[in-house]
Design a protein around this nucleic acid. Structure first.
Length: 271
DNA sequence: AAAAGCCCCTGGATGC
DNA sequence: TGCATCCAGGGGCTTT
């Protein structure tokens, strides 16, 4: 589920509420993608200094060390002073003086990993290869162009890879390419400077708009205070195969790229 | 270095 | 109603 907008919406929905809390207890359910990396006792008593986001990772800063949280494909967080009894797919809980943070993740592709610092081994491996933050000043169009130039593979795949620009997942890759009028199968290296500039803008616009709409709720995503997103009702191409393009009425097409579905308008997105 | 495939896991939708 | 198959917001790892 969660791409950059959903992760950012999640962060915004609980960061200010948990900051300043002290951890009382930690509970763990079934295994997530990686082991936590510390004992539960080690976390008790620590303070929460803030919550940042890097790509699709949430970084919960403690007064010493940090927790990396990734929502995987099906994860969502809840935060409230009192939560209902934990269910089958609630696999991690941070009980604090200000409320309980809970990760629900049916598929368990998500993870919560403790690191003493961002440069600790696993944290460094996970965060070290991440590309530019699309919504920050750091997203430089010249660096974007230089990166694309080295990739002969399809532009959609390069956007998803995350080593050039982070946070763009399967929904927003299709949407950004539509906004930029670029066919998803085109080789990244062959895009003109003008089209790259358009894509650079399109990525920022679609992600910012999705954050403003609370993200996309396809199955059961909600922010940490339980609010669903609404961006899914206004996608131009994602999951709209066979339906009329909202711009030109041509039927939207779909195809497979790297075991993922891609959606595009054959008329608006020129090869 | 880049690219392509496989795999982790559960549940919902669809088809027979 | 039951069972098999396919598909799903990700991404690390291994192999070409």
């Amino acid at each position: 589920m969660p791409e950059l907008p959903e992760v950012e919406v999640t962060r915004l929905s609980f960061a200010s509420h948990i900051t300043g809390a002290k951890i009382i207890a930690v509970r763990i359910g079934k295994a997530l993608r990686w082991p936590l990396g510390c004992t539960l006792d080690q976390l008790a008593g620590r303070g929460v200094a803030g919550v940042r986001r890097r790509g699709k990772y949430l970084l919960i800063d403690l007064d010493h060390g940090l927790l990396l949280v990734h929502l995987g494909m099906s994860g969502s967080l809840s935060f409230a002073p009192h939560l209902p009894a934990a269910g089958k797919h609630d696999h991690f809980e941070l009980v604090t003086t200000l409320g309980t943070l809970r990760l629900n993740d049916p598929r368990r592709f998500g993870a919560v990993v403790y690191a003493d610092s961002e440069s600790a081994e696993l944290a460094h491996k996970l965060l070290g290869k991440l590309g530019m933050e699309p919504l920050s000043e750091n997203f430089d169009v010249d660096r974007f162009r230089a990166g694309l130039k080295r990739r002969k593979t399809a532009i959609k795949q390069v956007l998803l890879a995350g080593d050039l620009v982070v946070g763009v997942g399967n929904i927003y890759a299709s949407e950004a390419l539509f906004l930029a009028g670029i066919r998803p199968t085109l080789s990244a290296a062959r895009l003109s400077q003008a089209r790259i500039a358009k894509l650079h803008t399109a990525i920022r616009e679609v992600l910012a708009r999705a954050v403003a709409k609370g993200g996309s709720t396809l199955r059961n995503f909600s922010s940490a205070n339980g609010e669903a997103g609404h961006f899914q009702t206004e996608t131009m191409v994602y999951a709209r195969q066979g339906q009329a393009c909202r711009v030109c009425a041509t039927p939207i097409k779909s195809l497979r790229q790297g075991q993922r579905s891609t959606f595009y308008c054959p008329h608006c997105q020129k090869a």
